[in-house]
Design a protein around this nucleic acid. Structure first.
Length: 481
RNA sequence: GUCGGGGUCGCUUAGUGGCCGAGCGUCAGACUGCAGAUCUGAACCAAGUGGGUUCAAUUCCCACCCCCGGCUCCA
């Protein structure tokens, strides 16, 4: 399996430092507003990566943080007259609801910055003790000149970093020993929330939280650290500096950054006011369609949000769902057996083994989900072809297992797909028998060539959200979207 | 400016030194009373521009053009 590592700008063979354990950290949101599609993209990207690593047999310890103290939090809470804690709770709930809707599995650890202030303070003291940090007027700064490797991740020339630092100097400039230095602890300003510390009342800088949480929860050297591409500099650069200065060990082995969601080719962001919240999108499209949309581009590439593309994804989702429900109907009671049995690769029919191989090859290639989707659709066509021709149960069982293996990695597991109306081919005894009654009536009409009446029945049921589909083997129905 | 990512059928997206795969859309056939789903086939005859290497380039090299993004708010 090869992964593109931002640190080396190369595809590298992925080998965890302590197999089968994989430690993985992703930078989560600052919880001052509702999650938008950009957040969803990042979350889904790392969810798929995590699922695939687990599919490959790794034991993934995954952490994703919430930034619940920073300038925007303080600003927003102040405007609304609530505390940052109240603000955080509201938006953490929204974020978690959005993640659940998209079937993004909860991380093993979901730390909040403000819950680890004590750890941050001791982390900063370690940096001070080692001479990498210095205090001025109640704030503490990281001394970039002391850390040789600074700029390695973002490949930024030191001069440029210094220029950037100088521009920022109106806030800390007088105190900073070098323009490149950055705050790891900020002295309290009037009205701001603050914690006691050896340097007086204050709050942590943004970058320190991820270093501390990652180190504390996952260890001094982790396997994978991820986040949006916009975090490379300065956030991740600073994380590396702090962490490695303190531990003397590599902070992270593989850096993975996801591309942005764009709207009309421009980055979706709050400042451009061109964003759509996850809730807004969920009102228009079923969540699995959104998931498929989000994996329709490779995670590093930009993906353009448009009605057209969401519409295409919605059609893809229908195709996936119909293949699944069709398979379940054909397998009947044998579906349970197919579900519980492990995939026996050697026993798979060659064409299905080939699609599974192709799926894995695609995912092994830096999580190439578009290529993986091609394998998924090939699998679906193979299954449908079998269904059309009336193949053996053994073939269908194998098809079911391969399909579920692929869908599981993409985050469309059965329990999730079953949440959506179109997936239901039955709805409890009474409804089932009621619909069956109308189908029988219609069949009688059809046999009598009374197609007018047959179509009326179908239209009436459709109006009630029940869709009939005729086939050689009789009429089936489902709840319409 | 600098660092990075791109320009492949109508749209989206893969792979590849020789015939470019998939999804959506379109058209036609099969199955249907019709519709839907499904299968089969097809069309559109797909590679930013200009050079170079090569028997052969979309794929390698060079130049140029254009697009997008980062550059301490940001997934």
């Amino acid at each position: 399996m090869r992964i593109y590592n931002t640190l080396t700008k190369n595809l590298e063979e992925f080998v965890p430092q302590d197999p089968p354990r994989v430690t993985m950290y992703a930078c989560g949101p600052t919880v001052y507003d509702s999650p938008h599609v950009g957040h969803a993209r990042s979350a889904v990207a790392f969810d798929v990566i995590r699922r695939y690593l687990e599919y490959k047999g790794y034991d993934v310890i995954f952490a994703r943080n919430y930034t619940d103290v920073d300038d925007k939090m303080i600003d927003r809470a102040g405007k609304r007259g609530i505390t940052i804690q109240q603000l955080a709770i509201q938006y953490i709930r929204e974020y978690e609801a959005a993640m659940d809707a998209l079937n993004v599995r909860p991380p093993v650890y979901a730390p909040r910055a403000t819950h680890l202030i004590a750890d941050m303070i001791s982390f900063i003291r370690d940096l001070e003790a080692k001479g990498f940090a210095y205090a001025r007027n109640g704030s503490v700064y990281f001394s970039v000149p002391k850390f040789e490797a600074y700029g390695r991740l973002s490949k930024k020339p030191q001069k440029e970093i210094a220029d950037i630092g100088r521009r920022d100097s109106e806030e800390f400039g007088e105190d900073k020993g070098d323009p490149r230095d950055f705050a790891i602890w900020k002295a309290q300003k009037p009205g701001e929330p603050a914690w006691d510390s050896p340097w007086g009342k204050g709050r942590p800088g943004w970058h320190i939280e991820c270093s501390v949480m990652s180190t504390k929860l996952l260890g001094e050297t982790i396997d994978i650290h991820g986040g949006g591409h916009d975090l490379v500099f300065p956030h991740h650069e600073n994380e590396i500096a702090q962490s490695e200065a303190r531990s003397g060990k590599p902070f992270c082995r593989f850096w993975i950054h996801n591309g942005f969601v764009t709207v009309d080719k421009e980055k979706m962001s709050k400042s451009l006011d061109n964003f759509f919240t996850v809730d807004q999108v969920l009102q228009q499209y079923e969540a699995p369609a959104i998931r498929l949309f989000l994996v329709s581009a490779q995670y590093r590439n930009p993906i353009d949000y448009s009605r057209e593309l969401l519409g295409q994804a919605a059609r893809s989702w229908q195709r996936v769902r119909d293949a699944w429900t069709g398979l379940l109907a054909a397998l009947g009671t044998e579906a349970a057996g197919a579900r519980s049995a492990a995939v026996e690769r050697a026993a798979l029919p060659p064409e299905l083994a080939a699609t599974l191989d192709e799926f894995e090859a695609a995912m092994d290639d830096d999580f190439n989900t578009p290529r993986a989707l091609a394998a998924l659709f090939t699998t679906i066509r193979t299954i449908n072809d079998g269904l059309t021709r009336g193949t053996t149960k053994g073939f269908l069982t194998a098809g079911f297992q391969v399909l579920m293996a692929i869908l599981g990695v993409l985050g469309l597991d059965e329990a999730y797909m079953a949440r959506f109306p179109g997936s239901r081919t039955h709805a409890g005894g009474q409804v089932e028998s009621l619909v069956r009654h109308f189908i029988d009536q219609r069949d009688a009409a059809r046999r009598a060539k009374d197609f007018k009446r047959a179509d009326e029945i179908r239209a009436t049921l459709k109006g009630m959200g029940i869709e009939l589909m005729d086939s050689k083997d009789g009429t089936t129905w489902r709840l319409a979207d």
